[in-house]
Amino acid sequence: MSLDLKPKKWAGALREVALGAGSRQPLTVGGGNGLPLHTFEAAFPHRPVLALEITDVDPARWVESVRQPWEGVLGRPAEAARRAVREFGADLLLVHLMGTHPDRGNRSPEQAAADLGAVLEAVSVPLIVKGPGAGQKQNAVLARVAEDCHGEGLALHSATNEDYKTLAAVAVAYGHVLVGESPIDVNIAKQLNILLADTSVDLNRVLIDPLTGGLGYGLEYSYSVMERIRLAALGGDAMLNCPIVCLVGEEAWKAKEAKVTADKEPLWGSQRERGIHWEVATAMTLIEAGAELVVLRHPESLTRIRQQLDSWFGSERSHDREEVASLNSTTSQGRETSGGAPCR
């Protein structure tokens, strides 16, 4: 008896957002017309993008096992950028301007723009620029960066319902993409996009950051909000079909379970592996819920996730329905077990 498993068709699809312009090698995210990773019944012109986070100043609070692969380049954005792209294979970089925060160095907008300039010189991948956190300083910093880097198609992180007008204006004026941030709430995410559209921002130049809860610290809330956003998008809601970006590294590595060493908690196993597992589990779970762009900290996490995604997307090519009919047929060649060495 053959199974009548009809592929699910949807009225809507994700927008495609182009990241990087000018001197960047552009990358596009989004465009899928089905549920995340459902390549067996839908078309996904672009695979999820994997980014690494680099910082403008030494991120003193990063735990040792995360600092270690970045040794020698922490707080040196251009060099970190080169290592991230050439050695670690990042598709895209998030430049975190944490040093511009008044409590963490209070670097000026000019200094921030200079840092961006150095990164733009060093690598040609697209960039997301993350400010020091909501407020006047962030607007000043991002506005300056946006102006000095005009035409490079940066993604500016982030605008919120309470404060979007400044960034919307500079994003439009200087040809950048805007990341809209909302506090794990579908309605608020939609409201922000409506407000942006009302101020003539092209939603094909907007990404949604629904706020990532790390594993154990709100992950399931982000997960379900993202699934609901994807369902609304596929149902035809044109205010919710922007691709989603998740800042996984920052959130996952906040967990004490990612950082505490085994001598303090022997049952918890090796901190190095555990931390990477924590980041990978957060990222894979959210990719399954619809993340089109994931920002990580540990390069080994990126390698592992890329390997996973290669199973779905192989190299850069489209996937459409005629694939994988074999799983439904009665004539396939048998299967291998997926057991590895059992535990002793």
Partner: peptide, 14 residues
């Protein structure tokens, strides 16, 4: 609460 947030917009989020 979801309905409440949705309605906290003019005239409504949807």
């Amino acid at each position: 609460m979801d309905e409440f947030v949705g309605a906290s917009f003019l005239p409504h989020t949807s």
